[in-house]
Design a protein around this nucleic acid. Sequence first.
DNA 1: GACTGCATTTCGAGC
DNA 2: GCTCGAAGTGCAGTC
Lengths: 241, 241
Amino acid sequence: MTLEQPTLEAACDAVSDGIAREALVTIFGRCTVDYDGRASSRLEAGDRHVMLKPDGAALVHTDEGQQPVNWQPPGCEHAVSCLREDDARTLVLESVRSTPDERLCVRFRRVDHVAAFAGTDETELTLSGTEEDLRQRILETPAMLETGFTPLATERETSAGAVDIYGEDDAGRTVVVELKRRRVGPDAVSQLRRYVDALTRDLHADATVRGILVAPSVTDRASRLLAEHDLEFVALEPTAE
Amino acid sequence: MTLEQPTLEAACDAVSDGIAREALVTIFGRCTVDYDGRASSRLEAGDRHVMLKPDGAALVHTDEGQQPVNWQPPGCEHAVSCLREDDARTLVLESVRSTPDERLCVRFRRVDHVAAFAGTDETELTLSGTEEDLRQRILETPAMLETGFTPLATERETSAGAVDIYGEDDAGRTVVVELKRRRVGPDAVSQLRRYVDALTRDLHADATVRGILVAPSVTDRASRLLAEHDLEFVALEPTAE
DNA sequence: GACTGCATTTCGAGC
DNA sequence: GCTCGAAGTGCAGTC
């Protein structure tokens, strides 16, 4: 279903019908956008593309950027109405949710295009090159980390949270491994440090706990932080080559 | 410009024309999606909505989720062609960039809809409730942090990075303030800790540096971490009420 | 171009 | 529902 240069009334009916039919609805036209919730924002009149998904998500896109300029997450209730505001007919799209209370309101004075799409999409994305792939690599060939490394657990709980890989080295020392799929900065080092500190405490006071950060590479600052806290780094990519 | 149930050839021409005219182009139809770059992914055939922006961004949306199932950031080169693959006519959308090398390829066997939109959008989003607002609040009324607090600098550089607010308390002790617009977890505490450690080092060895985390609230674990490292917490929201 | 940290981050898993 | 951390995070600002 598609309308070109519809009246606001016709657009309203089409959008309303599309939402009712659980279609993916798109509107293009001149609009203002108001958001209020976790933060609040206002966008003055301009031409934008609005997408309403049947799961309750709403997206307002300008002609620039990968990210929508405004949005609403899945689970929202969409409502559409056509009314008079400031002496001008206005198509009002409202998308609301609770917990947290959030409200997105798009007001059109001109609609160029309305479309509603229904289809089927059964398939799921297969993705590789993730942190999980890096973990698999190391569990299959622990020597990639270092000779004599023995993984004992993944997601092992500590008082600071779950450790990616928990194991021991050839001298029987406890090893905490933190994995990152890409080049790491200071935050990843702090994360590893929290786990090492926690585990040192959780285990006997005299236990030696080694911390190893595994990632393709590190920034300078992160490298210095690692050295400061006697943490180690092993360069590994999530996938071979 | 809109086409309904076009032939793949007609769709190809329309998309090509839209890209050439720097329009925002959308295509809805049955497609597979392949991505290869920082990671790699494959999505089998299903009905999806594809958006090509004139700045080079590409978005593939299913009927669920706020996030696109696949995408390409701004700055990519889009190309479209119609050719025979596996004995079937196929519309191929390719979006490529370098640094890093990334390639997104969407293959349509059926196109239901093609549209191209051109408009103007001069206005910028005004947003409030950000970390910047929280900073302004404190700089205008430093006593909100604590009586006698004097801000001396924002974004003050340390060997661990820039501190949100740098100042001193009524006893002349150095204070490092880390701001967060929302409830904080362990990562924010670690961040503050890095700054406090760095400044303690950067200044005289005998200097006392206080670290204060300012946010609407803290999680339990973060609260424990704060206590462990003698860091403080002040509850403040980015905007009044 | 790399680094750093914010974001209405979103998303998923675990509890 | 909250917590925690991953993400092809995106994005802006700075160097």
